[in-house]
Amino acid sequence: MTVLDLTPRPVPPPPGVRDAVRDTLALVGRSLRRSTRQLDTLLLAVLLPVVLLLMFVYVFGGAISTGMAYVDFVVPAIVLLTAGYGAATTAVDVASDMTNGIVDRFRSMPVPAGAVLTGHVVASLARNAVSTALVVAVALLVGFDPAASAGDWAAALGVLVVYVLALTWVAVAIGLVASGPEAASGFTFVILFLPYLSSAFVPVGTMPGVLATVAGLNPVTPTADALRALLLGAPVGSSAAVAVAWWVALLVVARVVAGLLFRRRR
C-alpha cells in the first residue's frame, strides 16, 4: 500500500529586489553578447554613420550653403542618424525574440517582466555610445571644430541620451507589434527618415513652404538645433527645452505602450 506524503512543502519566497536586479543584469549581458556576435549588424550600425559623414562632407558639402563649414553643421545630423540605426537594430532583435520562442521560456521563470526589454534597451545604448564616439572622432579628423565648454558637452549628452532612449523604446514597441524581424526592419524606416525632413542636414528656410512647415513641426528639428548650438558654443534659445520635452513625453508613452504590449503578447 502506497502512503501519500501530505506534509505541506515550504513555498519559496517571491523574488526580491536583489533577484530582480540580478536577473535584469543577466538579460542585459545576454543582449550585449548577442550584439557582439552579430558582426554584420554591429559593423553596419557602427561604420555606416561614418561612411555617411564622409559622404555628406566631401560629396554634398560643397554644394550646400549653411553659413558655416558644412562639417560643423552636419555632425549633429549624423549623430541623430546613428541613434536611428541603433533603434532599427533593437526593433529587429525584439521581434526575433518574440517569434523564436525564447520569451515564452523566460515567462515560465521568475524573471521580471520588463527585464527582457531592459536588456535590449541597454544594449542599444551601448551600441549608440560606440557609434557616436566613432562619428565624433572621425569628424574631428576631417575638420569638425567644436567650441563647446564642459557644461555644453554635458548638456548635449543629456539631450542625446533622452533622444536615444525615446527612439529605442519606440523601436521596442515596433518590435513587439511586428510579425517578425523583417517586418520590424521595414517599420523602422520612419525612424530613419525623420532626420532628413528636419534642420539636421539643411536649414529649414531653404525648403519649399509645405516641407518647411513639416520640418518645423518635426521634433528632430529642435533636437538638431540644440545639439548644433551646444557643440559650437552658440546661443541655444528654447530649442533644448523643446527637444527634451518632446522626447521625454515620447519616452514615457513608448515605455508604457511597450510594457502593455509585452504583457499581452503571446
Rank of each mutant, 00 (worst) to 15 (best):
L42Y: 08
G84H: 06
G259I: 05
V135E: 00
T221M: 01
V170Q: 06
T36L: 13
A45L: 14
G16N: 06
V190F: 15
G186Y: 12
L25H: 11
G216H: 02
R33G: 14
S185Q: 14
V164C: 10
V248A: 12
G233V: 11
R105A: 10
F187H: 03
A224G: 09
N218E: 01
P208M: 09
P8I: 15
D5K: 12
F56C: 09
A183H: 06
S124V: 07
V74M: 01
L47C: 13
D225N: 15
L141K: 04
T99M: 05
L157S: 08
A91V: 08
L167H: 06
L157P: 06
V11P: 05
L134F: 09
S65F: 07
R9M: 14
G29M: 07
S131N: 07
V164N: 04
V3T: 15
D145Y: 10
S96T: 15
T188H: 02
F193S: 13
V256H: 09
L227S: 00
A245I: 08
A45N: 13
F56D: 02
A243W: 09
A113T: 15
R37I: 09
G86Q: 04
D145A: 15
L47F: 03
M207H: 05
L25F: 15
A173I: 04
A234P: 01
V57W: 00
S108T: 11
A133C: 04
G62C: 10
T223C: 11
R105F: 04
A200Y: 00
Y163T: 07
T221L: 04
R33Q: 15
L217G: 06
